[in-house]
Amino acid sequence: MSLGFFGRPPVLLALSLIGLALATGYRLSTQSLETARDAGDVSAVAAQLEAEQRRLQNRLGELQAERDRLRSRAQGPQEGLSGLLAELISQQVLAGTVGLTGPGVVVVLDDSPRRPLRGEDPTLYLVLDSHLRDVVNLLWQGGAEAVAINGERLVVSSSIYAAGGTIVVNAARLAPPYEIVAIGPPELETLLKAPDRLTQLKARVQNYGLQFTVRRVPEVTVPPYKGGFATEHLRW
């Protein structure tokens, strides 16, 4: 039996390639489904852990408030205690476990409202963890005294990294828009707006429509850090 046109070697090769491509496609779509299911599991586990975290944070907050109340009440008859307690508060302020208020700046970063062109890297249109790190680093360089992103106070152990489409700070998943509040000198606004600073971020604003606004405010509130500090390896 003759296969005619379909029997020619180049056509056979082409047909095999189509078969291969289709088979690979099927395998990939199965994999994608599995990945999606795994991602769903991870998200569910993360949500449970986050709920647990909120419960623990609330419990710790209650205990600390009660402890501080009893400490200050017991203060009277004990000598030298008031000095010690004052020093403790100043260290808590430095550690970031106390809410602060003062003049400063509010910086808002948001993903671009534009849609990526065909074949373009979609991350060019998104706020990245590195953008937030650069802004925060510049705020510290400019003399900021306290900084928080979407309500997460930045402390000595805080890192800012990307995970599954969100940015994680203090084990909290944050979503855009990212609002960075900082207490510090009025010059922070000029520093952040200076054309030779945050050049990579500003290029994305210019070329891809990323949103970046800075405004000076007479009063801003930076909430306390609600987590704990790891000191298992630290000796002093």
């Binding site: 795994d38 991870v42 993360a46 852990l49 995970a163």
Partner: peptide, 18 residues
């Protein structure tokens, strides 16, 4: 990053318990 996120959450909760 999922693994990192989960590890972070677990550690954060452990620190809170301590």
């Amino acid at each position: 990053s999922d693994a990192r996120l989960l590890a972070d959450l677990i550690e954060a909760n452990n620190r809170l318990r301590t």
